[in-house]
Design a protein around this nucleic acid. Structure first.
Lengths: 123, 123
DNA sequence: CAGAAGTACTATGTCTGTCGTAGTAGCGAC
DNA sequence: GTCGCTACTACGACAGACATAGTACTTCTG
Protein backbone atom coordinates (compact mmCIF):
# COMPACT_ATOMS: atom_id res chain seq x y z
CA UNK A 1 0.00 0.00 0.00
CA UNK A 2 2.20 2.84 1.19
CA UNK A 3 5.49 2.40 -0.55
CA UNK A 4 7.51 3.92 -3.26
CA UNK A 5 6.63 2.84 -6.72
CA UNK A 6 9.63 1.56 -8.59
CA UNK A 7 8.99 3.85 -11.52
CA UNK A 8 9.81 6.83 -9.40
CA UNK A 9 13.01 5.52 -7.97
CA UNK A 10 14.00 4.12 -11.34
CA UNK A 11 17.18 5.75 -12.40
CA UNK A 12 18.09 6.68 -8.86
CA UNK A 13 19.03 3.24 -7.68
CA UNK A 14 22.44 3.69 -9.25
CA UNK A 15 22.83 7.02 -7.50
CA UNK A 16 21.96 5.53 -4.13
CA UNK A 17 24.46 2.75 -4.57
CA UNK A 18 27.19 5.16 -5.62
CA UNK A 19 26.47 7.31 -2.60
CA UNK A 20 27.00 4.36 -0.30
CA UNK A 21 30.29 3.59 -2.00
CA UNK A 22 31.67 7.10 -1.62
CA UNK A 23 33.29 6.40 1.74
CA UNK A 24 34.44 2.85 1.30
CA UNK A 25 33.98 -0.18 -0.92
CA UNK A 26 31.08 -2.45 -0.14
CA UNK A 27 29.16 -5.40 -1.51
CA UNK A 28 25.62 -6.36 -2.41
CA UNK A 29 24.15 -7.52 0.81
CA UNK A 30 25.60 -4.70 2.86
CA UNK A 31 24.40 -2.08 0.39
CA UNK A 32 20.87 -3.43 0.48
CA UNK A 33 20.86 -3.35 4.27
CA UNK A 34 22.12 0.19 4.36
CA UNK A 35 19.53 1.36 1.87
CA UNK A 36 16.83 -0.15 4.03
CA UNK A 37 18.25 1.45 7.15
CA UNK A 38 18.89 4.89 5.69
CA UNK A 39 15.41 5.04 4.23
CA UNK A 40 13.81 3.96 7.50
CA UNK A 41 12.42 0.85 5.85
CA UNK A 42 10.64 3.00 3.29
CA UNK A 43 12.63 1.59 0.45
CA UNK A 44 13.89 -1.94 0.15
CA UNK A 45 15.81 -2.62 -3.00
CA UNK A 46 15.18 -5.95 -4.69
CA UNK A 47 18.14 -8.27 -4.99
CA UNK A 48 17.92 -8.59 -8.73
CA UNK A 49 17.62 -4.85 -9.13
CA UNK A 50 20.70 -4.38 -6.99
CA UNK A 51 22.93 -6.88 -8.73
CA UNK A 52 21.90 -5.78 -12.18
CA UNK A 53 22.71 -2.24 -11.10
CA UNK A 54 26.22 -3.36 -10.12
CA UNK A 55 26.71 -4.93 -13.52
CA UNK A 56 25.53 -1.80 -15.27
CA UNK A 57 27.65 0.47 -13.08
CA UNK A 58 30.75 -1.56 -13.74
CA UNK A 59 30.05 -1.70 -17.47
CA UNK A 60 29.83 2.08 -17.46
CA UNK A 61 33.05 2.39 -15.53
CA UNK A 62 31.47 3.92 -12.45
CA UNK A 63 32.59 1.14 -10.13
CA UNK A 64 35.32 -1.49 -10.05
CA UNK A 65 34.83 -4.91 -8.57
CA UNK A 66 37.34 -6.97 -6.64
CA UNK A 67 37.32 -10.12 -4.57
CA UNK A 68 38.10 -9.81 -0.91
CA UNK A 69 39.93 -12.97 0.01
CA UNK A 70 39.55 -13.25 3.73
CA UNK A 71 42.02 -15.69 5.25
CA UNK A 72 39.73 -17.07 7.93
CA UNK A 73 36.40 -17.47 6.26
CA UNK A 74 36.73 -17.32 2.54
CA UNK A 75 33.50 -15.52 1.93
CA UNK A 76 33.12 -15.25 -1.77
CA UNK A 77 32.00 -11.72 -1.85
CA UNK A 78 32.34 -9.29 -4.70
CA UNK A 79 33.25 -5.87 -3.44
CA UNK A 80 32.71 -2.71 -5.41
CA UNK A 81 34.76 0.45 -5.33
CA UNK A 82 33.64 3.74 -6.84
CA UNK A 83 35.83 5.20 -9.58
CA UNK A 84 36.52 8.83 -10.40
CA UNK A 85 34.06 8.58 -13.25
CA UNK A 86 31.57 7.22 -10.76
CA UNK A 87 32.06 10.18 -8.46
CA UNK A 88 31.55 12.58 -11.34
CA UNK A 89 28.44 10.75 -12.43
CA UNK A 90 27.12 10.81 -8.89
CA UNK A 91 27.57 14.58 -8.68
CA UNK A 92 25.78 15.00 -11.99
CA UNK A 93 22.85 12.99 -10.74
CA UNK A 94 22.70 15.14 -7.62
CA UNK A 95 22.54 18.24 -9.80
CA UNK A 96 19.87 16.62 -11.90
CA UNK A 97 17.89 15.78 -8.83
CA UNK A 98 17.38 19.41 -7.91
CA UNK A 99 16.10 20.22 -11.37
CA UNK A 100 13.81 17.22 -11.32
CA UNK A 101 12.48 18.09 -7.91
CA UNK A 102 11.79 21.62 -9.01
CA UNK A 103 9.92 20.50 -12.09
CA UNK A 104 7.87 17.79 -10.40
CA UNK A 105 6.82 20.12 -7.62
CA UNK A 106 5.30 22.47 -10.13
CA UNK A 107 2.72 19.74 -10.63
CA UNK A 108 2.28 18.69 -7.03
CA UNK A 109 -0.29 20.28 -4.81
CA UNK A 110 0.70 20.62 -1.21
CA UNK A 111 -2.49 19.04 0.03
CA UNK A 112 -1.67 18.99 3.69
CA UNK A 113 1.47 20.13 5.39
CA UNK A 114 4.06 17.48 5.28
CA UNK A 115 6.17 17.35 8.34
CA UNK A 116 8.57 14.52 7.95
CA UNK A 117 8.09 12.33 11.00
CA UNK A 118 11.48 11.72 12.45
CA UNK A 119 13.16 12.43 9.19
CA UNK A 120 16.46 14.13 8.80
CA UNK A 121 15.96 16.68 6.11
CA UNK A 122 18.83 17.55 3.88
CA UNK A 123 18.66 21.13 2.72
CA UNK B 1 23.08 17.71 -21.93
CA UNK B 2 21.27 19.37 -19.08
CA UNK B 3 17.85 17.85 -18.94
CA UNK B 4 15.80 15.47 -16.98
CA UNK B 5 16.36 11.87 -17.76
CA UNK B 6 13.15 10.11 -18.58
CA UNK B 7 13.83 7.42 -16.01
CA UNK B 8 13.42 9.92 -13.25
CA UNK B 9 10.21 11.45 -14.45
CA UNK B 10 8.87 8.03 -15.36
CA UNK B 11 5.78 7.41 -13.36
CA UNK B 12 5.18 11.11 -12.82
CA UNK B 13 4.06 11.96 -16.30
CA UNK B 14 0.61 10.70 -15.44
CA UNK B 15 0.58 12.84 -12.33
CA UNK B 16 1.57 15.94 -14.28
CA UNK B 17 -1.17 15.37 -16.81
CA UNK B 18 -3.78 14.84 -14.12
CA UNK B 19 -2.69 18.03 -12.41
CA UNK B 20 -3.29 20.00 -15.58
CA UNK B 21 -6.73 18.47 -15.91
CA UNK B 22 -7.81 19.39 -12.39
CA UNK B 23 -9.25 22.75 -13.38
CA UNK B 24 -10.69 21.98 -16.76
CA UNK B 25 -10.62 19.40 -19.53
CA UNK B 26 -7.84 19.65 -22.05
CA UNK B 27 -6.25 17.81 -24.94
CA UNK B 28 -2.87 16.54 -26.01
CA UNK B 29 -1.27 19.46 -27.67
CA UNK B 30 -2.36 21.94 -25.04
CA UNK B 31 -1.14 19.71 -22.22
CA UNK B 32 2.26 19.35 -23.81
CA UNK B 33 2.54 23.12 -24.21
CA UNK B 34 1.57 23.73 -20.61
CA UNK B 35 4.07 21.19 -19.33
CA UNK B 36 6.78 22.95 -21.28
CA UNK B 37 5.70 26.33 -19.98
CA UNK B 38 5.22 25.34 -16.36
CA UNK B 39 8.60 23.64 -16.26
CA UNK B 40 10.32 26.63 -17.85
CA UNK B 41 11.35 24.52 -20.82
CA UNK B 42 13.12 22.12 -18.49
CA UNK B 43 10.85 19.28 -19.39
CA UNK B 44 9.31 18.66 -22.77
CA UNK B 45 7.14 15.60 -22.94
CA UNK B 46 7.37 13.53 -26.08
CA UNK B 47 4.23 13.20 -28.13
CA UNK B 48 4.16 9.43 -28.02
CA UNK B 49 4.72 9.44 -24.30
CA UNK B 50 1.85 11.84 -23.84
CA UNK B 51 -0.67 10.01 -25.95
CA UNK B 52 0.19 6.64 -24.50
CA UNK B 53 -0.26 8.19 -21.08
CA UNK B 54 -3.77 9.31 -22.06
CA UNK B 55 -4.63 5.80 -23.17
CA UNK B 56 -3.32 4.35 -19.93
CA UNK B 57 -5.09 6.93 -17.81
CA UNK B 58 -8.37 6.27 -19.53
CA UNK B 59 -7.96 2.52 -19.26
CA UNK B 60 -7.44 2.96 -15.53
CA UNK B 61 -10.50 5.16 -15.25
CA UNK B 62 -8.60 8.25 -14.21
CA UNK B 63 -9.76 10.31 -17.16
CA UNK B 64 -12.66 10.29 -19.61
CA UNK B 65 -12.35 11.34 -23.21
CA UNK B 66 -14.87 13.20 -25.31
CA UNK B 67 -14.96 14.89 -28.69
CA UNK B 68 -15.45 18.62 -28.78
CA UNK B 69 -17.42 19.30 -31.89
CA UNK B 70 -16.83 22.93 -32.60
CA UNK B 71 -19.37 24.37 -35.01
CA UNK B 72 -17.01 26.72 -36.81
CA UNK B 73 -13.88 24.75 -37.31
CA UNK B 74 -14.40 21.09 -36.71
CA UNK B 75 -11.12 20.45 -35.05
CA UNK B 76 -10.93 16.79 -34.43
CA UNK B 77 -9.57 16.98 -30.97
CA UNK B 78 -9.92 14.46 -28.20
CA UNK B 79 -10.49 16.18 -24.90
CA UNK B 80 -9.86 14.56 -21.57
CA UNK B 81 -11.63 15.18 -18.32
CA UNK B 82 -10.36 13.97 -14.94
CA UNK B 83 -12.62 11.60 -13.00
CA UNK B 84 -13.11 11.27 -9.26
CA UNK B 85 -10.86 8.22 -9.32
CA UNK B 86 -8.32 10.33 -11.13
CA UNK B 87 -8.42 12.99 -8.47
CA UNK B 88 -7.93 10.39 -5.77
CA UNK B 89 -5.05 8.85 -7.65
CA UNK B 90 -3.49 12.27 -8.11
CA UNK B 91 -3.66 12.94 -4.38
CA UNK B 92 -2.06 9.57 -3.66
CA UNK B 93 0.77 10.35 -6.01
CA UNK B 94 1.31 13.67 -4.28
CA UNK B 95 1.54 11.89 -0.94
CA UNK B 96 3.95 9.40 -2.46
CA UNK B 97 6.05 12.19 -3.82
CA UNK B 98 6.90 13.48 -0.37
CA UNK B 99 8.01 10.06 0.77
CA UNK B 100 10.05 9.56 -2.37
CA UNK B 101 11.68 12.94 -2.02
CA UNK B 102 12.57 12.23 1.57
CA UNK B 103 14.12 8.90 0.70
CA UNK B 104 16.07 10.09 -2.33
CA UNK B 105 17.48 13.04 -0.44
CA UNK B 106 19.01 10.70 2.07
CA UNK B 107 21.33 9.70 -0.73
CA UNK B 108 21.92 13.09 -2.25
CA UNK B 109 24.76 15.29 -1.13
CA UNK B 110 23.99 18.95 -1.13
CA UNK B 111 27.09 19.82 -3.08
CA UNK B 112 26.49 23.50 -3.47
CA UNK B 113 23.55 25.53 -2.34
CA UNK B 114 20.74 25.29 -4.77
CA UNK B 115 18.75 28.43 -5.03
CA UNK B 116 16.18 27.92 -7.68
CA UNK B 117 16.61 30.73 -10.16
CA UNK B 118 13.29 32.36 -10.65
CA UNK B 119 11.47 29.30 -9.54
CA UNK B 120 8.32 29.29 -7.52
CA UNK B 121 8.92 26.91 -4.70
CA UNK B 122 6.04 24.90 -3.37
CA UNK B 123 6.52 24.04 0.28
C1' DC C 1 22.16 -33.00 14.67
C1' DA C 2 18.66 -31.55 11.48
C1' DG C 3 16.44 -27.93 9.64
C1' DA C 4 15.50 -23.08 9.38
C1' DA C 5 17.20 -18.57 8.66
C1' DG C 6 20.71 -15.58 7.07
C1' DT C 7 24.37 -14.51 3.69
C1' DA C 8 25.79 -13.90 -1.18
C1' DC C 9 24.98 -14.36 -5.13
C1' DT C 10 23.55 -16.05 -10.67
C1' DA C 11 20.29 -17.06 -14.39
C1' DT C 12 16.29 -16.32 -17.09
C1' DG C 13 12.42 -14.32 -18.66
C1' DT C 14 8.54 -10.84 -18.30
C1' DC C 15 6.46 -6.34 -17.96
C1' DT C 16 5.92 -1.44 -18.36
C1' DG C 17 6.83 3.22 -19.64
C1' DT C 18 9.47 5.84 -22.66
C1' DC C 19 11.07 6.97 -27.06
C1' DG C 20 12.48 6.74 -32.10
C1' DT C 21 10.58 6.76 -36.44
C1' DA C 22 7.11 7.40 -39.51
C1' DG C 23 2.84 8.51 -41.45
C1' DT C 24 -1.75 11.02 -41.97
C1' DA C 25 -4.39 15.11 -42.31
C1' DG C 26 -6.27 19.76 -42.00
C1' DC C 27 -5.08 24.78 -41.82
C1' DG C 28 -2.84 29.25 -42.50
C1' DA C 29 1.22 31.85 -44.12
C1' DC C 30 4.60 33.36 -47.44
C1' DG D 1 3.03 24.83 -53.27
C1' DT D 2 5.34 23.62 -49.61
C1' DC D 3 6.63 24.90 -44.96
C1' DG D 4 5.33 25.03 -40.30
C1' DC D 5 1.85 24.31 -36.86
C1' DT D 6 -1.82 21.54 -35.00
C1' DA D 7 -3.53 16.89 -33.65
C1' DC D 8 -3.03 12.85 -33.63
C1' DT D 9 -2.11 7.07 -34.65
C1' DA D 10 0.79 2.94 -35.43
C1' DC D 11 4.69 0.13 -34.70
C1' DG D 12 8.65 -1.43 -32.84
C1' DA D 13 12.79 -1.10 -29.81
C1' DC D 14 14.90 -0.57 -25.45
C1' DA D 15 16.13 -0.36 -20.62
C1' DG D 16 15.33 -0.86 -15.78
C1' DA D 17 12.76 -3.21 -12.42
C1' DC D 18 11.01 -7.40 -10.90
C1' DA D 19 9.27 -12.31 -10.33
C1' DT D 20 10.85 -16.70 -9.87
C1' DA D 21 14.06 -20.04 -9.11
C1' DG D 22 18.22 -22.15 -7.96
C1' DT D 23 22.98 -22.68 -5.76
C1' DA D 24 25.92 -22.76 -1.87
C1' DC D 25 27.89 -21.83 2.38
C1' DT D 26 27.29 -20.37 7.37
C1' DT D 27 25.10 -19.70 11.72
C1' DC D 28 21.49 -20.05 14.80
C1' DT D 29 17.83 -22.90 17.13
C1' DG D 30 15.07 -26.72 18.99
Amino acid sequence: MSGISSDVIRGYNDTMILYLLLDEPSYGYEISKRIKQLSNDKYIIKETTLYSAFTRLEKNGYVESFRMEDKENVKRRTYYRITEAGKTYYKEKCEEWYVTKEVVEMFIQAGNLHTAEGGTTIL
